[in-house]
Design a protein around this nucleic acid. Structure first.
Lengths: 337, 337
DNA sequence: CTGAAAGCGCTTACAG
DNA sequence: CTGAAAGCGCTTACAG
C-alpha cells in the first residue's frame, strides 16, 4: 500500500508543528488564534494532497468513530430496508456512517450484535429491540452509550423511542372492515410478544368489541418458513369458514395471506375483505389493490436520527417518546362490487 | 462510561508483561513457547472479565479492521437487500462485519463512498460498480486493497467478479415468449450502460434474431420516478400496439410494467405474455403469477465472500471471473388460456 | 499565536 | 520462556 500521508508530513512540508495542523483540521484555528493566512495554507495543502486523518489514531484518542449501529429485525424486509436506506441518507449527510445488522428476532443474536457494535465503538445505536435485552439497554444507559428504539419499545425500559401508533392503526383497519360490511373479521398475527404486535392485537379487539361480533385470532409462528405460514393461514381460514374479513398484522403476513386466499379461490373484496398493516409496492400493484395501514416511514427515519444525534451531543435532557400516526390507504380489497 | 479494561490491567492482575498477554490473545502462545498453564490463566481472566482489545489501538498498529464495505446500487431493492443479508451472514460467521452503502448508480456518490470506506480502513470491498470508477478500482489494485465486483463488471478492468449470465437469462426469457407464440416481443430496459444491462439487451436481440421478428426496445430513464416510469411504459405500449410479449430487464421495471399494463386493461397471459429478469415474491403472489428469470442469489453471496476472503488472505493468485447460471421459472404470465 | 511532549492501547522486533 | 520499549498517528493540556 502506498505510504499514507500523516499529519507529520503536512506539518513538515509547511514548517509548522503538528499541533497547528491538528487545530486547523479540527476547526479550532480561530479559537486558537492561528493566523488566517497559515490556516488557509494548511487547508490548501490538505486538499491538494488529499490527506485524510487516520481514523484509528483519532479514535484511540477521542473514542469517537462517527459510526452508528443500526440493528433491525431483518434488512431483507421491505419496511426495514426502506427505513434503513433513509436513515443511511440522513446520517450520511451529518457525517455519520451506518453499520447495519439483522437480528431475526433472535435474542441471542441481538445480544451478540450489540456486543460487537459496542466493541467497535459505535457512537450510538438504533435498535428494533426484542424482549430479553433489557439488561443490555440498561447497561448502555449506565455507560452513556446513546441509543434510540424504533418500531417497538420495551415496557419497563425508559428510553427514547420512535414508533407508530399500532393500536390506532389496527383499530382503523378493523373498524374499516366492519363498517364496510365484513362483519366477521379475523386478525392474522404472529406469536411474538413485542409491544407493537400486542398493540395491534389490542386495536383489533377494541374495534371488534365496539363494532363487531367476536374475536377470531390466528397466530402464525414467527419462525415459520413462507410455505408453512401460507399453509397455516389456509388452515385457519378453512377452520373458520364464517370469516369474511381479515386484518393482517404485518406486511409479510399479508403477502402469505394473499397466497393462501388465492389457493382457496376466494374472491378478494367480494367474498373477503382484506387490510394489511404496513404499506408496500405489492399492495399497490396486486389486483385487486390491497387496502393498507401506511406507516410514515420517512418521518420515522428523520425522527430517529434527529433524536439520536441530539442525544449523542448531549443536547437532549428529557425522554423522547415519539408516537407517529399511521394512515389508512383505502383500496379495492375492501370494496364489494 | 465505565473505565474499559486494557491489556495492562490483565497483565498487572496476573503479574506478567503485556507482551505475554498479547501473544496469548493473538494465538501465538505456542509459537512463543508460553507455558500452557500461563496461557490458560490469561484466557480464563480474559473470559471472566470480558476484556475486549481496543479496536483502534489494534487498528492503528495493524491497519486491519475486520470490516468489509458493501456498496450496492440500492439497498431498498429486493435483490440487493436479500443478497446483502446473505453476505452479512457469511461474513459474520467468519468474524467480519459489513458496512453497507447505496450508490443510486450515481458515479459521484460511488466515488465518495469508496473514499469514505477506504478512509475507514475496510479490509476489503464488495462493489456493484458504475461506469466511471475505473480509476478508483485501478488505484485500489495498486494499493493492494482487495475487492470483488458483483452483479456486473466493467470492461477494461481485470478484477475478480461474480455475475449472473445476463445474456443467457435474457435469451431464455425472450426465446420462451417467442416459443409460446407471443411473436412480437419487446424489451423494456433502462438507459444505463452497465455490463449486465448491455448483456440483457444482447440476449434479447439474439433470441429475436433467431426466432422472432424485429427488435422493439423501450428504454426507461434510470432516474425516473415510479410514476414517470409507469407512464413511460404505458406510452411505449400505446405507441407499439402490435406488441404481445414483454421481457422486462429488471425486477423493478416489471413491477412498473404491471402497473402500466393493468392501467391499459390488457389481459396478462392472454393478450400479452410477460417475463421479468430477477425473481421475487411479487411475481409468485401476483395473479396471474409472473414468469421470471431467477438469479442464484445464495450462490452469488457465498461466492462473493469466499473470493474476497481468500483474496484478503492473499491466497488467490489467479483472477476469479465467476458467471453463474440463471434459471427460467415458468408461471402463468406466459400461458394462454 | 505556536510548539514540544504526553498519552490513548495495542503489536512486535529485540534482548536476555 | 518472558519483558522493556518503540512506535502506529492522532489530540490536547501545558508552556511560552
Amino acid at each position: 500500500m502506498a505510504k499514507k500521508l500523516s499529519i507529520k508530513d503536512i506539518a513538515k512540508e509547511l514548517n509548522v508543528s503538528i499541533t497547528t495542523v491538528s487545530f486547523v483540521l479540527n476547526g479550532r484555528a480561530k479559537e486558537k488564534r492561528i493566523s488566517e493566512e497559515l490556516t488557509q495554507k494548511v487547508l490548501d495543502l490538505v486538499k491538494q494532497t488529499d490527506y485524510k486523518p487516520n481514523i484509528f489514531a483519532r479514535g484511540l484518542r477521542t473514542g469517537k468513530t462517527k459510526t452508528i449501529g443500526l440493528i433491525v429485525e431483518n434488512i431483507a424486509n421491505h419496511f426495514f430496508a426502506t427505513i434503513a436506506r433513509l436513515i443511511e441518507e440522513y446520517a450520511y449527510s451529518k457525517g455519520y456512517k451506518i453499520i447495519y445488522c439483522s437480528t431475526d428476532n433472535d435474542v441471542q443474536k441481538t445480544r451478540e450484535l450489540i456486543g460487537m457494535l459496542k466493541e467497535r465503538n459505535v457512537d450510538g445505536l438504533i435498535i428494533t429491540p426484542s424482549a430479553g435485552i433489557e439488561d443490555l439497554l440498561t447497561g448502555m444507559q449506565e455507560s452513556n452509550l446513546p441509543f434510540v428504539l424504533f418500531d417497538r419499545h420495551l415496557p419497563g425500559i425508559k428510553a427514547d423511542y420512535v414508533v407508530v401508533d399500532s393500536f390506532k392503526g389496527a383499530y382503523l383497519a378493523t373498524a374499516h372492515l366492519l363498517e364496510k360490511g365484513y362483519n366477521k373479521v379475523a386478525i392474522i398475527t404472529t406469536d411474538s410478544k413485542q409491544s407493537q404486535m400486542a398493540d395491534r392485537l389490542n386495536g383489533y379487539k377494541s374495534a371488534v368489541k365496539e363494532l363487531g361480533d367476536k374475536n377470531l385470532i390466528g397466530r402464525i409462528n414467527f419462525s415459520s418458513s413462507p410455505a408453512e405460514a401460507v399453509m397455516a393461514i389456509k388452515t385457519f381460514l378453512e377452520a373458520h369458514p364464517e370469516v369474511n374479513g381479515i386484518f393482517f398484522a404485518t406486511n409479510y403476513l399479508a403477502a402469505y395471506g394473499l397466497e393462501a386466499i388465492t389457493n382457496l379461490n376466494f374472491s378478494i373484496g367480494d367474498k373477503i375483505g382484506i387490510v394489511a398493516f404496513d404499506d408496500e409496492q405489492l399492495f399497490r400493484i396486486y389486483r385487486p389493490t390491497i387496502t393498507a395501514v401506511s406507516q410514515p416511514i420517512d418521518a420515522m427515519a428523520k425522527k430517529v436520527i434527529e433524536i439520536l444525534l441530539s442525544r449523542m451531543e448531549n443536547k437532549t435532557k428529557t425522554l423522547d417518546e415519539i408516537v407517529l400516526q399511521p394512515e389508512l390507504v383505502e383500496r379495492m380489497s375492501t370494496k364489494r362490487k
